[in-house]
């Protein structure tokens, strides 16, 4: 046990150090070098107005999706479960699309604020989560459940496409850039909302960690050991909805970080105990999201962070699948 505790601590310290290095590197990325920003008096406008919010958004969203992934992998007892695969991100996307496109198009209605978009995304995520929980109660096979999640995601994406179809050109352009997945374009107000929701989701996940551990040994064993399985699932799903809804509302659908961060964490720390996996996955998710953000801007022309995350994530998932045969 001491060996394992040391490994967990070492992992967290390394991830934190990496986080700081990547954050510093990400802050410096862009057309204008850092020295010019400081010397040219653009600290407030560019550094605090654009770059710091982008770096913080990436860290918070990556951490949020990793927390959601580690909880979903436990409650569905499936190593490939994450908000993106299980259709929760797509549900959040539909919620955000309704808020940004439909209501903005209604004459006389003001474009909704960030809180409303986050709430709509949360509602969309909640609908998707409720559906997936309902399906999971009648489906025993993990693979069938995973496929059901993928199908659910397709349905929500189709609904989102229908909503897009009725949008005007300007709103549609905004929505397309959102749906590609990006950590840029947020102000500090969105960062605070994201941080607040992540905080609530993290606390819920953390106090539920004992339940997440026992549920890995099966529903029957958990119930016979006195664990309130329904309550554990409910707390987890609320936590997942909060963090996924917030991350998706402000960054668009970012996949794969929710799958790979918990796997990397478990592999490097040697434990599946959620008391350690949840905070360590959050750090790992933040590191991965920052890495994806840096990769999305290093080539000169900014790329969608969702795509660079997929480029990092898919090889890792293939490795996991091949290793598990």
């Amino acid at each position: 046990m001491p060996v394992r505790r040391n490994k967990s601590l070492l992992f967290c310290l390394t991830a934190f150090a990496l986080l700081l290095i990547l954050a510093a590197a990400d802050l410096s990325c862009g057309d204008i070098p850092m020295r010019e920003i400081i010397q040219g008096g653009m600290v407030r406008d560019i550094l605090f107005g654009v770059r710091i919010p982008r770096v913080l958004t990436a860290m918070l969203a990556g951490g949020a999706l990793a927390i959601a992934g580690s909880q979903m992998q436990a409650i569905f007892r499936n190593p490939l479960a994450d908000p993106h695969i299980m259709g929760v991100s797509a549900g959040a996307g539909t919620g955000a699309a309704i808020a940004t496109i439909v209501l903005a198009a209604v004459p006389g209605t003001m474009v909704l604020g960030s809180i409303s978009i986050a709430l709509a995304a949360f509602a969309g995520a909640a609908v998707a989560s409720a559906l997936i929980v309902a399906i999971s109660s009648s489906v025993r096979s993990g693979n069938t459940l995973l496929l059901s999640g993928v199908m659910l995601g397709f349905i929500f994406s189709a609904v989102t496409s229908i909503i897009e179809y009725s949008a005007n050109e300007e709103t549609l352009k905004l929505f397309y850039s959102w749906s590609a997945g990006s950590f840029s374009g947020n102000r500090m107000v969105e960062v605070w909302i994201l941080a607040g929701l992540l905080g609530i989701g993290l606390i819920a996940a953390f106090v539920n960690s004992k339940g997440l551990d026992i549920i890995l040994f099966g529903e029957e064993y958990s119930e016979l050991s006195g664990a309130p399985v329904k309550k554990i699932r409910l707390i987890s799903m609320v936590s997942c909805c909060l963090v996924t809804g917030a991350a998706t509302a402000f960054c668009g659908p970012i996949g794969f970080v929710g799958i790979i961060a918990p796997h990397i964490t478990r592999w490097l720390t040697g434990t599946s105990s959620h008391r350690k996996v949840i905070p360590a996955s959050m750090l790992c998710g933040a590191v991965l999201a920052l890495l994806a953000d840096i990769l999305s801007v290093v080539g000169g022309k900014p790329l969608p962070a969702g795509s660079t995350m997929a480029l990092i994530g898919i090889p890792v998932i293939l490795f996991i699948l091949i290793k598990k045969k």
Binding site: R4, F217, S225, G226, T271, S273, R275
Partner: peptide
């Protein structure tokens, strides 16, 4: 009951007394 990787045998035995352990298990 599945043999979940990442738990020691003692940690697994401890899960049996779920309601008697504290919030962190």
């Amino acid at each position: 009951i599945p043999k979940v990787k990442g738990f020691t045998l003692r940690e697994f035995v401890r899960t049996g007394c779920y309601s008697e352990t504290d919030i962190w298990g």
